[in-house]
Design a protein around this nucleic acid. Structure first.
Lengths: 134, 134
DNA sequence: GTTACTGCAAAGCTTTTGCATCCCT
DNA sequence: AGGGATGCAAAAGCTTTGCAGTAAC
């Protein structure tokens, strides 16, 4: 696919599959999930390839590694500034694209060169809220 | 130590050592670090005991598990609401105890029952800033 | 033709678990 | 005395790595 040229990586069928899967994906999948999805189309793809490709994409700035889930790493193809909402029950992660200004205390401002921030909201999603009642 | 009675856990020497080490600790140590520190005083303590104790303290609400570091879990004995500042170079984690109000978009407010939030600030600390120049 | 990528299997880390023994309450 | 905690070692996950063969450029 032409849209992926110029990344600075060789475009193998495996990588194209991963790139296409991630493109526009808002599910913040884990490597395991990505591997499972890839195997549907490319049963011969290996775990190592998935991990190495994710690493490569991360280094190229095409992917963000999320540290939200303590069990495993999750990946986010949306590399723009945004925040996340996590359902503490089903662990679903939802994007929040609103601009949320936060002011930092003066003493912090002076002792650190700030480069960014990330807000995690915790809550219970609609689905879990409903299921809890039953 | 009397201050630890009523936790609902048996106070063994190992646990007291861990509790005392964590008390007022602002370093967000990993299990590995805690284990290493414990071995200085109690060379016979095992890894399993450290992990099981951390798990027990977490379940009792005496400890927060941080998911900031993708490499390993870190623990925070400060269970009150606060935020964190992370040096992207040396990975040092500093507490921010200021109240930082953040407003959530309406559509989010309606679809989730919010229970809390956590802000991570990224930057470069004074020390790394200085070392970088040299 | 080079260089980078793939796939396999093995290794590396962190974290968990089973179980017999021990000791706090 | 009883039930929880300890320690050991083994196992379980997730992630990384070495290497020979292969394919993209």
């Amino acid at each position: 696919m032409k849209k992926y040229r110029g990344i600075g990586l060789k475009l193998t069928p495996q990588r194209l599959a991963i790139l296409e899967y991630l493109d526009g994906n808002r599910e913040h999948p884990s490597a395991e999930t990505i591997y499972a999805e890839m195997r549907k189309k490319y049963p011969m793809i290996s775990f190592a390839t998935v991990y190495k490709t994710l690493e490569a994409l991360k280094n190229k700035g095409r992917l963000h590694e999320l540290t939200i889930d303590p069990e495993r790493r999750r990946y986010d193809p949306d590399t723009g500034q945004h925040h996340h909402l996590i359902c503490i029950q089903c662990k679903k992660i939802v994007d929040i694209h609103a601009e949320l200004p936060v002011t930092v205390p003066d003493d912090v401002e002076q002792s650190f060169d700030l480069v960014g921030n990330h807000i995690e909201f915790y809550g219970i999603c609609q689905k879990c809220k409903t299921e809890r009642r039953t």
